[in-house]
Design a protein around this nucleic acid. Structure first.
Lengths: 92, 92
DNA sequence: TCGGCATGTAGTACATTTGCTACATGCCGA
DNA sequence: TCGGCATGTAGCAAATGTACTACATGCCGA
């Protein structure tokens, strides 16, 4: 199944579902049950094969206790580690 | 076209698109052009006949310069006037 | 009054999302 | 080793989002 892209071949939607799930030690099935969808649907979303409805997106964000923008983005995400510790070109 | 509801007859999604458009004096066509959809699609969303994809929801929120949660909600919105001026049971 | 704009309704067509089933792989613990 | 869990791939079927066209109404300004 191909990844969804715009007319320039860039993905139209980026997601952190897999990352947030991993941080919380949550399986796809657990997340799926928490939001009320099939566990395969979570897989499709993580792989970028589906773009969820805003209802599903908000339910997922609610499970993580985060705003939608923290879970989904129209622009590529910067690594959370960079945002937390800052981006350093050189190590001292 | 019926309004989309859950199994209890309650809408699953609430939107402030119409309100935000009115505040900004923007027509449906203008908003539609700004986000790149058909102007009827905006009408469907305002009337609660469609639930948008998260991509469309984020584009709309971006036009208004607001987070997705300010434009769409799984719970009914409180009037903005109340949030701004506070809710008063009695007028002095 | 006439014209245009904004909006609502209706209907068709197509793409995508979602549900679901089945099967394969890999990892890990009993 | 065996079994279960998590994940990936591959279908198919059903629901729904989106595009688009056409027509009606109401309002407002020239």
């Amino acid at each position: 199944m191909p990844r969804l892209t715009d007319n320039k071949g860039e993905p139209e939607l980026y997601t952190r579902i897999g990352l947030l799930r991993a941080e919380r030690g949550m399986s796809r099935k657990e997340l799926a049950d928490a939001v009320g969808v099939h566990y395969q649907t979570i897989g499709y979303l993580e792989r970028g094969e589906y773009r969820p409805s805003v209802v599903l997106a908000m339910r997922i964000a609610a499970v993580f206790g985060l705003p939608v923008e923290a879970v989904f983005s129209l622009e590529p995400f910067r690594p959370l580690s960079e945002q937390v510790y800052g981006e350093r070109k050189e190590m001292a």
